[in-house]
Simulated scan of single mutants.
Amino acid sequence: MSTLFRPQAEKLATLTGHRDCVYALAGAPDSTSVYSAGTDGFVVEWDLENPERDGELVARVENSVYALKYLPERGLLLIGHNFQGVQAIDLKARQLIFATALPPAAIFDIAYSESRQRVYVALGNGTLAVLHAADLSLEHLVPLSHKSLRCLILHEERQELAIGGSDHLVHILDLETLTPKQVIPGATSSVFSVCYSPDGRYLLTAGRDAHLRVWDVAAGYTEHLSVVAHLFAINHVIYSPDGRYVATCSMDKSIKLWDATGFRLLRVLDRARHAGHGTSVNKLFWSAHRNRLVSCSDDRTLAVWQVSE
């Protein structure tokens, strides 16, 4: 049996300034900047190199924001403005350059395909919106479910899009035709997060039933593993930049770090042990820059964690 390394995690900073729950984080894997947004409509940029600095306001919108997507090659930040549509902010000029109205629904997630130059948007009315990346013009509205679509992830090599929803299902779509190739049952409640492993071998899913499920992609998305990972709903699942670890965050106020090979629990980051969040942890972003993990919460704050061996 291989030696199991338990990473250390130190809380470096608590980032304050949001006036309500924070739901969205975005950034590039090697970037020193992370962007946050939430119920207050503020979109804020934070510097991970200097986490003690105040955040800089990038935009303010009328309604809440659950989804952000950063396109570093174009210097754009996409904002899912609930019940309005998707907006694109030029980060250098700090100005709105594109805005596309969508059906009046919550926007829960945004994905981007560089190979197809498309943006995919998960809507609370069960519809997938497909936009042209060049100007965010609407190409298709694809009705998929009678319940909310909550999360998206692309498998560029297989040209597949995995979509989790409140219908307890994960829909696998063909990117060329936008038709379902497969539907994965298994969850007993809403699916809040979907994540492909860096090598594309596994699809990880999690949600309200607090289970972390691992699906073998090459074997037709058969279930590889299921773990009761948290006490309450899992809001987000991500891999570390080097692919060695998986991080989950939950309504139970904790963040957990897992071994990405056997999915064994390595460390728990919570309020009692690490001065973590006091309420639900909603989203994670893991930067390759100094291996820093960022979390956001209903407690209106972000936390910056230094992860090391």
Rank of each mutant, 00 (worst) to 15 (best):
M1S: 13
S2H: 08
R6W: 01
E10H: 12
A13T: 03
T14R: 11
H18A: 08
R19H: 13
V22D: 02
G27T: 04
G27K: 03
G27L: 04
G27Y: 02
D30F: 00
S31K: 09
T32P: 03
S33F: 03
Y35G: 01
S36C: 03
A37E: 06
G38K: 04
W46E: 08
D47V: 01
D47Y: 04
D47F: 01
N50C: 04
R53E: 14
D54H: 11
L57M: 14
L57V: 13
V61M: 07
V61I: 14
E62L: 10
L68I: 11
L71R: 13
E73F: 01
R74T: 03
L78S: 02
I79F: 07
I79E: 06
Q84F: 09
Q84S: 13
D90W: 08
I97N: 13
F98W: 15
T100W: 05
L102C: 08
A105G: 09
A106S: 11
I107R: 12
F108I: 00
D109H: 08
I110A: 00
I110R: 00
A111E: 13
Y112R: 12
S113C: 02
E114Q: 15
R118M: 06
V121T: 01
L123A: 01
G126K: 04
L128Q: 09
D135H: 04
S137W: 04
L138M: 12
L138G: 08
E139Q: 13
L141K: 07
P143G: 00
P143R: 04
S145W: 01
H146A: 14
H146D: 14
R150N: 14
L152A: 06
I153K: 05
H155W: 02
L161P: 08
L161C: 12
A162W: 03
A162E: 06
D167L: 05
L169N: 11
L169S: 09
I172N: 10
I172R: 12
T177K: 09
T177A: 07
L178K: 03
V191F: 03
F192L: 13
S193D: 02
V194A: 11
C195K: 14
S197R: 13
T205M: 12
H211M: 10
H211L: 02
V214R: 07
W215H: 10
D216H: 14
V217R: 09
A218D: 13
E223T: 14
L225Y: 05
S226G: 07
S226R: 15
V228A: 15
V228G: 08
A229D: 07
H230I: 01
H230D: 02
H230N: 04
A233D: 10
H236M: 03
V237A: 09
I238C: 15
Y239T: 02
Y239F: 15
Y239D: 02
Y239C: 03
A247T: 00
C249Y: 05
K253V: 02
S254G: 09
I255V: 15
K256R: 15
D259W: 08
D259M: 10
T261F: 11
L265Y: 01
R267Q: 13
D270T: 05
R273L: 07
H277R: 10
T279G: 00
T279F: 11
N282T: 01
K283Y: 02
L284Y: 08
F285V: 02
S287A: 12
R292H: 10
S295P: 09
D298M: 01
R300G: 00
L302N: 09
